[in-house]
């Protein structure tokens, strides 16, 4: 049988491509973790705290422009005109992924296509967060595909650097325990050590000093995390 996809001999990474790889990782992880965090808050809204979405907005660092839990559900999840919405996060993933098709491959990109198509179905929008389990499944498949299909370490770890950086940011914002944050930080360090050249080494050194049980929730740590990318 003939080979239908040619082997890529050279895989140049320009500054613009590095930027796209990084943001692909960040936005994809943001979609996945946002849904994860939202499920906890939606559970609280059932009977314990009907205004739990307000504390969600505070932790995410976004303005609470929503009038009720229902309004939040509709507009934060599905409103394309709301720049913070989950559907818009997915569109940002797609923007970057489409520009990287030749690196991540069509079979990986398709999980983003499927996610957007799923979110745009009226019957899914009527179900609210419950209808979005499939998005979580697709995002897990997306990450699996990234791991399985991308053979170029530099490309794969640049995306995963963005992923872990976003994960660190959100876990700290949502008050996760230090051992969980430390574990994610270790994964990020692993990516940085594996041919990922887009992490600013000096900032990383400083961050390492502050990534301690006593310090990790300080606002300065979040600022350092968000200054780690360089291209």
């Amino acid at each position: 049988m003939q080979t239908l996809t040619a082997t890529k001999i050279n895989s140049g990474i320009s500054s613009a491509k590095a930027n796209r790889l990084y943001w692909l990782g960040r936005y994809a992880e943001r979609v996945y973790l946002t849904l994860h965090m939202l499920r906890k808050h939606f559970d609280l809204m059932i009977d314990e705290d009907k205004d739990s979405y307000i504390s969600f907005c505070t932790k995410m660092g976004i303005e609470n422009k929503y009038t009720s839990a229902d309004d939040f559900t509709k507009r934060y999840l599905f409103d394309c005109s709301n720049p913070e919405s989950v559907i818009n996060m997915l569109e940002r993933v797609k923007d970057n992924a489409m520009m990287l098709r030749e690196e991540i491959m069509t079979e990986t990109l398709c999980y983003i296509e499927l996610s957007i198509a799923h979110m745009n179905k009226p019957e899914v929008q009527n179900k609210g967060i419950e209808g979005l389990q499939r998005i979580t499944d697709y995002m897990l498949a997306f990450w699996g595909s990234i791991d399985e299909r991308i053979v170029n370490n530099q490309i794969r770890h640049s995306i995963k650097f963005g992923k872990y950086l976003e994960s660190l940011d959100l876990h700290i914002r949502f008050d996760y325990q230090f051992n969980r944050v430390e574990e994610i930080f270790a994964r990020m360090l692993h990516s940085v050590e594996q041919e990922c050249y887009i992490c600013d080494e000096l900032t990383l050194l400083t961050l390492k000093q502050h990534m301690t049980f006593d310090d990790y929730k300080n606002i300065g740590v979040l600022q350092l995390i968000n200054s780690l990318f360089r291209s």
Partner: peptide, 28 residues
């Protein structure tokens, strides 16, 4: 799609530069 299947780099204008009448891909 062709870049993916042909195994070549998909470049945008900003990724390329001409110096000394030679074209280069601007890496990191």
């Amino acid at each position: 799609y062709l870049a993916e299947k042909a195994g070549v780099i998909l470049a945008f204008a900003d990724d390329l530069i001409v110096e000394n009448d030679t074209v280069y891909y601007k890496g990191l």
